[in-house]
Structures are given as structure tokens and as C-alpha cells.
Design a binder for these strands. Structure first.
Lengths: 186, 186
DNA sequence: GTCTATAGCTTGATAGAC
DNA sequence: GTCTATCAAGCTATAGAC
């Protein structure tokens, strides 16, 4: 039992980055090996289920990061505005100012995507639900709260695609800045 | 010189679909061969530059389709509203009601994406320019016209990602229906 | 212009030593 | 837990017959 070169959290974060940049089929084991500093066989020791398990574990890890970090500010005692602004700051951090793509985008592409669809859909729904609850707390009715939270997610996904395709990250920044207005009307 | 099994236009449309669904790395030659009905060697006869040339040609073909079909209604003599609505109808058609992804999304992922970035960026800019011109014609100032056309593209890209990731195509339909309000304020 | 056959490399995955 | 060595299968691409 030699000592681990990299702990689980660090490993999953390296993997997250690789899947954000290359997607599922583009993320070859060679690439993953290079990014993590672990040889193929070591990767299979950590993830006996291979690439598919890597993706599942990455998705779960990101779910957890969202729950305990990105969306956590929403459950504090601060003002609605302060909560949304803090969440925006963390979302911006997570996507490195628009330089990284959303996993729900990059992993929903291609042949293998069916295997993760359930998880991806669930993650999306959870994220949506958190924003929706916030909009309701701000006084919006059920239908409007729903539409506004969807609008928020759509603008984030759309601007991330635009940032990747064109290199223009300003719309992403603007989308983040628009979150308070969109979600709590302020 | 045996007769062609499939003409250039039909071939490029089959390829478009494959790259929309699988992205660059996911679109293997076996998959392409199956989708087009042509064997590997025949594909290399039609595209001597291999997969990279296929993508370049697909992007150019889609540029042309946008110019001569999707965006063509904007240059007619009809009312602004009628023009935008007709364009929306054709955009919806092109993306098969949200069942297909945008190539600017699927091809900007992965290792190879650098090779197409220039083309992708140019296509994006052209599309944006057409919508911007329309918004200006509707009376919006330069800055607002720019923002509104960006917003239109972002909502389309974002809703297409959402449709792929969750299967929910309603936001895409709504984005199409919102184009008149967004671009000409009606 | 399409085909079969094949080359050479990369892929995801495994066996077994330390 | 990590490693080297190895495997079969898949990949992109090419040669040459019809």
C-alpha cells in the first residue's frame, strides 16, 4: 500500500476540469493520466468502473460542491440581495470567469451521454429548484418564479457556450451581474 | 467513375447531423460511414482532408444555409414582425424543435477545436451581425441593438443546451417566440 | 466514385510485480 | 496504491481493384 499521490478531492477536481474542457469522448485516459499524474492502472484502482465511473463520481462531487458552496449562501440569514450576489460570485469562481464549460453541457454530448442523462437531469433540476425557491421567497408567484429561474440557468449556459465558441466572456459576466435583478427583482 | 450514391448537399446534411449529435471526437468514421452509407475510403475521396475537412465543409455549408434560408426572410419587403417570425420558424425547423444542438457548441469542445475556432467565431459574428442590423432597423440604438441581438443568441444557445441535457424543449420554443419582442420590441 | 483490404496508431482496460 | 507491460478493439488514414 504505497501512499496516495493525490487525494480524492484533488483527483476529482482535476477530472472535473478535464471533462469540462474535452467532454466525455475527448477525455482520453492518456489525457486524464497526464492531468492527474496517475498512470492508467492507478486510475483503474481508484475508479474500478473506468471512465464511466469517473464521470458519475465527478457529477456527484460537483453536486456536492454546488450544495455546500455555490448555493450555500442562499441559506444564510443575510439580505436577499447579499445572498444572490454572493452566489453569483461563487458561480463566477466555479466557471473561472467563463473560461470553463458546464459539465451538464459537455457531458450531454455523444454516444455515451445516455448513461449519465439521469444524473445530469437531476443535477439540473436541483439547481433550478434552488433558484426557484429563492425567487418565490422574493415574492414572485409560482409561475413567474419558475420562469425566472429557468431564465437564469439559460443565460448562464448560453453565455458559457458563447464564451467557449468566441472567446468573449463579457456576456457571461453580465449574466452573473443580472442574477439579482432576474431572481429577486432587485 | 461509378455514379455518386449521394450528392454533396445530402452528404453535408448527414454530416451536419452527426456532428450536431456527437461533436468532433465522438463522430467516428464508423459512425459517419453508417450515417452516410459511404465506406471510409469513399469518404476520403470526397473529403481528402479527412475529418477536419468534413467539419470545415459542414461549417461552410451551414453558413450558406443560414445566409440563404434562415436569415433570408430578414431581407424581404414584408413587415419587421413578419420577417422575424418567419426567421424564427426557420430556426426552429433547423434545430428540429430543439432536438438538435448548435454546431458552434458541439464543435468548440475538445482538443481539435482550435482548428475550427476561427471559422466558428466568424459564423457566430455573422449571425450576430444580422440580428443586430435588424434591431437597429427597428429603431434601437447601437448599444441596445447589440445587447438585444446577443441576448437572442444566448437564449437560443442556452435553451438548446437545456433541451439536450434535460429533454425539456419548452424553453427553446419560448426563446423562439420571444425573438420578435427581443429584436424589434414587438 | 465506390469498394475491400490493410497499415499503424491510440484507445479503454487488465495482469501482476513492488 | 502505484507502477510497467500488455491486450484486444477501435481509431484515422491509405493503397489499389473495379
Amino acid at each position: 500500500m504505497a501512499r496516495a499521490k493525490i487525494n480524492d478531492d484533488q483527483l476529482l477536481e482535476k477530472l472535473t476540469k478535464v471533462f469540462q474542457v474535452y467532454g466525455y469522448e475527448g477525455a482520453s485516459l492518456s489525457l486524464i493520466s497526464e492531468a492527474t499524474g496517475l498512470q492508467r492502472a492507478s486510475l483503474y484502482h481508484r475508479f474500478p468502473g473506468g471512465k464511466e465511473q469517473m464521470v458519475e463520481d465527478v457529477l456527484s462531487h460537483v453536486d456536492q460542491r454546488f450544495e455546500t458552496y455555490l448555493l450555500a449562501p442562499l441559506k444564510t440569514e443575510k439580505s436577499l440581495g447579499a445572498r444572490v450576489r454572493e452566489m453569483g460570485k461563487r458561480i463566477n469562481e466555479f466557471y473561472v470567469g467563463g473560461r470553463r464549460s458546464c459539465l451538464l453541457d459537455t457531458l450531454s454530448l455523444g454516444k455515451q451521454s445516455g448513461a449519465f442523462r439521469k444524473h445530469i437531469k437531476a443535477s439540473f433540476t436541483t439547481w433550478l429548484g434552488a433558484l426557484e425557491a429563492l425567487a418565490k421567497e422574493a415574492g414572485f408567484g409560482a409561475i413567474e418564479a419558475r420562469e425566472r429561474s429557468e431564465q437564469a440557468l439559460i443565460s448562464i449556459e448560453g453565455t458559457l457556450v458563447m464564451a467557449r465558441a468566441t472567446g468573449n466572456r463579457k456576456p457571461f459576466k453580465r449574466a452573473i451581474d443580472s442574477l439579482p435583478g432576474l431572481l429577486i427583482g432587485a
